[in-house]
């Protein structure tokens, strides 16, 4: 099962046991088996507002105002970018929480083109306060992070992708998957396996983050070896977490290299996910070249 299917079937289970939960959809995923089954059992708690993404978030805010725990889901351009002001005002400014679950990541729907790509979602959520951001790298991580997000009242963004690592890495904070002395590479979510391949033979520590907000500054500092050289590898806009690295290492002379999707190019190509990985330098060859140039 991929992350999206895992999310939907986990929601079906969770809706059955937690009467506060409401799943809010805007047509996307509404016709899937787990959603239809849950809707039959809980017609007041599985809502499809149609292709109305401003209402998707506005309704989510209203539900939270009544004490419910809403989970809103669609593709990331329509969940975060289009209703950005609703996120800012109907959730943050009202002082209420919700779980937003996107599926599609930066360019999972590679051939769909720019309209269905969203590399700015995490950066946008960085402009409003209080968001926990999960970027799972495996369906089992997605399930665990979802289940941890459903209780409580916080604001949580769960960014699902069709790209995944070979196995799940469960745990809190940044996990140390390889130890070295010449610097740290922080791999976020689905970037991990390719980072491990690209840094094979380099004397560097590889940290893994399935949760990137809050940013585990203590974990990053603890991982530093002889030199404070840090490479970020994020599956969304390059440098999205750079300001957090800067803050974490404010009193330490350091170097930073940020890999991610390009900010300064309007990528108009279609093709496969791997074609976009290549364009953004996020395939093994691209990360290898960047790492070898940086960790000298």
């Amino acid at each position: 099962m991929d992350m999206r299917t895992t999310f939907l079937s986990t929601m079906e289970e969770a809706l059955a046991v937690d009467p506060r939960l409401v799943l809010v959809l805007a047509d996307i995923s509404a016709g899937t088996g787990p959603v239809l089954a849950a809707q039959r059992r809980h017609p007041d708690r599985v809502l499809n507002v149609g292709i109305r993404e401003q209402a998707l978030i506005g309704v989510t805010g209203g539900l939270a105002l009544t004490g419910m725990r809403p989970v809103a889901h669609t593709f990331p351009p329509f969940l975060v970018e289009r209703p950005y002001e609703q996120i800012k005002l109907d959730l943050c400014h009202q002082g209420v929480g919700a779980v937003l679950v996107s599926s599609g990541a930066s360019y999972d729907m590679a051939a769909a083109g720019r309209t269905h790509h969203s590399a700015a979602d995490v950066a946008l959520l960085d402009t409003v306060p209080g968001w926990t951001v999960h970027v799972p790298g495996h369906p089992e991580e997605a399930r665990r992070l979802l289940l941890e997000s459903l209780p409580g009242d916080g604001r949580v963004y769960l960014r699902l992708s069709s790209q995944a690592n070979a196995r799940a890495h469960l745990g809190a904070g940044f996990l140390t998957l390889r130890q070295g002395t010449r610097g740290v590479v922080l791999a976020v979510g689905p970037m991990l396996d390719r980072v491990l391949a690209a840094t094979e033979g380099l004397d560097v520590t590889v940290l893994y983050a399935a949760t990137i907000r809050p940013f585990d500054a203590a974990g990053l500092r603890a991982a530093l070896g002889e030199v404070a050289d840090v490479m970020l590898v994020e599956p969304y806009q390059a440098g999205t977490s750079a300001h957090h690295v800067g803050e974490a290492l404010a009193d330490v002379p350091h170097r930073l290299r940020s890999l991610g999707t390009q900010r300064d190019v309007e990528v108009r190509q279609y093709g496969e996910v791997t074609d976009h990985d290549f364009v953004h330098g996020l395939d093994v060859a691209g990360i290898t070249a960047a790492a070898r140039a940086f960790f000298r």
Partner: peptide
């Protein structure tokens, strides 16, 4: 402008579910 009505609709959904 334009936020109250969607919030109100969500509020009704939430009350109805309870």
């Amino acid at each position: 402008l334009g936020h109250g009505l969607p919030l109100a609709v969500g509020t009704v959904y939430g009350l109805r579910a309870q």
